[in-house]
Amino acid sequence: MLKAENIFYSYDDGTKALKGIDFQISQGEIVALVGKNGAGKSTLFLNFNGILRPDEGNIFVDGDMLKYDKKSLIKCRQKLGIVFQNPDDQIFAPTVEEDVAFGPLNLKLSQDETQKRVSEALKRVGMSGFEKKAPHNLSGGQKKRVAIAGILAMKPEIMILDEPTSGLDPVGVRKIIKLLKELNNEGMTILISTHDVDLVVEYADKVYVIVDGEIIGKGTPNEIFNNMEIIKKANLRLPLIAELFKKLEENGKITGLNNNYPLTVKEGYEKITEILK
């Protein structure tokens, strides 16, 4: 659905931000892109929707190679919605509804259709009733949801979220993750950048690990988090549950894990009940 082939990108000052990225995401997946700050996650996202143009390599959306003329850019940006890390960078209009309407109106939809989409999108993210509110009076979590609504209203096929849970309180994080899972169940393909490993293992189907502009590992959460070499290289850590089991194993309390640690609370719970039997 979205495919990147051998993407190289360097900034004007010569810093090489991306060095030969190959990336692929299929319909209906939730993919997590993990890596430390400055690894090139945001830069890669901006390459995906043509804001930045790679020095080398190609982007394919739905099998079509991205060309950089106006028409294909609009088409690409409608299909690939990016929710930025800081909602303040994204929300600009004086009222919530005007901001959400911005995308659909740019797609030249009629006022009626836009209004329908705005109320649908706000309802979807649980922000109905906030239409006339000024964005700067909202809380961080609410702003985030308005930002997501602004993208939803464009009816994208893939939603890309740059660190959607950073700076939110635990309840806010839960709500966002729940919303994303629901959207995914409704058929939305989702790509998330994050470094919250405990969350990644909960929702992601596939994980890409990026270090200094290179993908050093991809696979299911189990494949990635049982490969200590990748974890170390990427400045990540194991999910807390896995750490617990690792420590138990190192001290000889548990045997027979074969480097295959439970990653989520659910898996850990099952493992423990199995052992306690």
Partner: peptide, 12 residues
């Protein structure tokens, strides 16, 4: 950043 965000939503 705002320009990037606007462009991402097809700002013309």
């Amino acid at each position: 950043k705002l320009q990037c965000a606007l462009d991402s939503r097809c700002y013309d």
